[in-house]
Design a protein around this nucleic acid. Structure first.
Length: 187
DNA sequence: GACCGGATGTACT
DNA sequence: GTACATCCGGTCG
C-alpha cells in the first residue's frame, strides 16, 4: 500500500508517479496507465474558483478521493495530493483483477480495450460513485499498491478541457493499448 | 429562481 | 464526424 508520504508530494510528481501503480476497489481494478494533473492555480481545475460544496474533497486531506459527476451521467475519480486544491484525475487503467465484475457492471459488448479506457468508463467498471467522494484511499474498499515497475512515461496535453490546454499535464504509459486516447508524437 | 455548460460515452450517419 | 443523454454547482438576477 502507498504511504501517506506519497500523496504529500507535489501534484506534478504524483501525476507521474501514479503511472504503473495498481488501483483496486473491493479487489476489482488494475494498473493505472493514464493520469492528469489539476491544481488551484489552473483555470481548467474545479478548484480554481476556490472551495465549494462540490470540490470540498480537493481541499481536504491528501490521499483521499475526489469524485464528481460529469454531464449528469458519468463519474470521475481524482486523487487529492500536494497543496490544497490539487488532485490527479485517473483517466485509464489496464484491467487486471475482477474482469468479470467489470464486464457485468459495464454491461455492453465492446472491445476489451475499452473496458476502463476513460475516466467515466473506469468508474463504471470499478463501481465508483459519489458515495466514495472524500473516502480515504488508504483503506477499503480502495487499495493502491506500488508493484515496483519503472514505467516508460509519456506526456501530452490534457483532454476534453477548454481552458489552459497548453501545459503537458497528461501522463501515460508509453505504448499502452489501454489508454483512453493515444499520445501523439514521441515525447 | 432561471440559466448555463462541463476533466464523457455511446449510437448512429 | 455529429447528436444526444441527463445532472447539479456556480453565477447572476
Amino acid at each position: 500500500m502507498l504511504s501517506l508520504d506519497f500523496y504529500t508530494r507535489s501534484v506534478d510528481d504524483v501525476v507521474r508517479a501514479l503511472i504503473g501503480v495498481t488501483l483496486t476497489v473491493d479487489g476489482v481494478g488494475g494498473i493505472i496507465v493514464e493520469t492528469e494533473a489539476y491544481d488551484a492555480a489552473d483555470p481548467a481545475s474545479h478548484s480554481f474558483a476556490g472551495r465549494t460544496a462540490r470540490n470540498a474533497a480537493m481541499f481536504g486531506p491528501v490521499g483521499h478521493a475526489y469524485v464528481y459527476r460529469i454531464y449528469g451521467l458519468h463519474h470521475c475519480l481524482n486523487i487529492v495530493c500536494g497543496t490544497p486544491g490539487s488532485a490527479v484525475l485517473i483517466r485509464a487503467i489496464e484491467p487486471r483483477h475482477g474482469i468479470d465484475s467489470m464486464l457485468e457492471r459495464r454491461g455492453i459488448a465492446r472491445p476489451l480495450r475499452e473496458l476502463c479506457a476513460g475516466p467515466g468508463r473506469l468508474c463504471e467498471a470499478l463501481g465508483i460513485d459519489m458515495a466514495l467522494d472524500g473516502a480515504s484511499l488508504d483503506r477499503p474498499p480502495f487499495l493502491l499498491e506500488d508493484i515496483g515497475i519503472m514505467p516508460d512515461v509519456v506526456t501530452g496535453p490534457r483532454i476534453g478541457i477548454t481552458k489552459a490546454a497548453d501545459r503537458p499535464r497528461r501522463f501515460g504509459l508509453r505504448g499502452s493499448p489501454w489508454l483512453s486516447r493515444p499520445f501523439l508524437g514521441s515525447n
